[in-house]
């Protein structure tokens, strides 16, 4: 059972308006049967400090990652997780979070790996909800355990591995990290923990479009016309392009993946979640340094 779509005018200009809901919409529909609200944050304790009444928490580090392999959880673990959160296969899931929905977009991307059909983002996320002084609570949400089916992940359509990137040369790559990381001046985000990369720089031919350029100051997504100006006019993407986006560990590029796929309508956009922590450490892969994208090497089939 699917919740009604948000007909907010701003969303109508996006390629897939059904992937966003406004804070007004959520305030009206929270509590509807078949709707589950999920909070997903960078800070693992923020949900405990206060959350939207009835929402459940899914943490990227502790819930969605496999604890042994550097990979996402498998179908059985995803089914167990979603069942415990009261999410059914036909639930409408609305995800919101801190930092302009950066981690919320990541969670949405992982839900998409498992083919969960109706998953949406709250435009503006946690910041906008709080700025509008909407209701928050520290009360535990009561959930009824569901029986989410075991669905195996389907990585290929939206996830790129290192070899996919090597074979992709000649087609558009978007680097969504900070300018300092792109040029190679540093290997980690300003003010973030060092996650370890032996080389600084970017994948040759990747164009730099820091992820946060897609977000407005109130944490909402920028309107369609502004996004077109950034990704089409400036970064040079055209319809039909096969695009791979990456960052440092694949979290910021999920945000860009959402923008390109659902707001601008590019098909077949993939997120390279190995990103710079893999590429910057891999043996015998080419990199470019400085502000120039550099030339794409021959693709390695």
């Amino acid at each position: 059972m699917s919740a009604p779509f948000d007909t907010t005018e701003k969303f109508a200009a996006y390629a897939h308006p059904s992937k966003l809901v406004s804070t007004e919409w959520l305030a009206k529909h929270q509590g509807d049967a078949g709707l589950v609200i999920v909070e997903s944050d960078e800070d693992v304790l923020l949900y405990e400090v206060g959350h939207i009444p009835g929402s459940v928490k899914i943490d990227w580090h502790t819930d969605l990652n496999d604890t042994v392999n550097r990979d996402y959880i498998d179908g059985a673990a995803f089914a167990a997780l979603l069942s415990s959160k009261g999410i059914a296969r036909d639930s409408t899931v609305v995800i919101y979070g801190d930092k302009s929905n950066w981690w919320a977009a990541y969670a949405l991307w992982v839900f998409t790996l498992f083919g969960h059909d109706d998953v949406r983002l709250l435009d503006g996320g946690r910041e906008k909800w709080l700025a509008e002084e909407r209701e928050m609570t520290t009360d535990a949400s009561s959930t009824t355990t569901t029986d989410y089916p075991v669905v195996e992940r389907n990585d290929a359509p939206i996830r790129a591995f290192k070899d996919d990137v090597l074979a992709h040369f000649g087609k558009p790559l978007i680097d969504v990290r900070s300018p300092e990381e792109y040029s190679g001046a540093r290997t980690t985000m300003p003010a973030y923990p060092e996650e370890g990369a032996l080389r600084g720089g970017h994948i040759p031919s990747a164009v730099s479009v820091p992820w946060a350029r897609a977000a407005a100051s109130d944490s909402t997504f920028k309107p369609r016309s502004e996004l077109d100006a950034i990704y089409r006019a400036e970064a040079g993407l055209t319809d039909g392009d096969d695009v791979i986006a990456y960052c440092r560990i694949g979290e910021r590029s999920s945000h860009t993946w959402f923008v390109l796929t659902h707001l601008l309508g590019f098909e077949g956009v993939r997120n390279y979640d190995g990103s710079w922590t893999e590429w910057g450490n891999a043996v015998a892969v080419p990199i470019s340094v400085g502000t120039d994208p550099g030339v794409a090497p021959a693709p390695r089939p």
């Binding site: 580090h61 502790t62 990652n65 604890t67 923990p193």
Partner: peptide, 14 residues
């Protein structure tokens, strides 16, 4: 480590 993630714990080590 399991509750918070090893990556986040690095902040405390720092």
């Amino acid at each position: 480590s399991a509750a918070v993630s090893p990556l986040r714990l690095r902040g405390m080590s720092a």
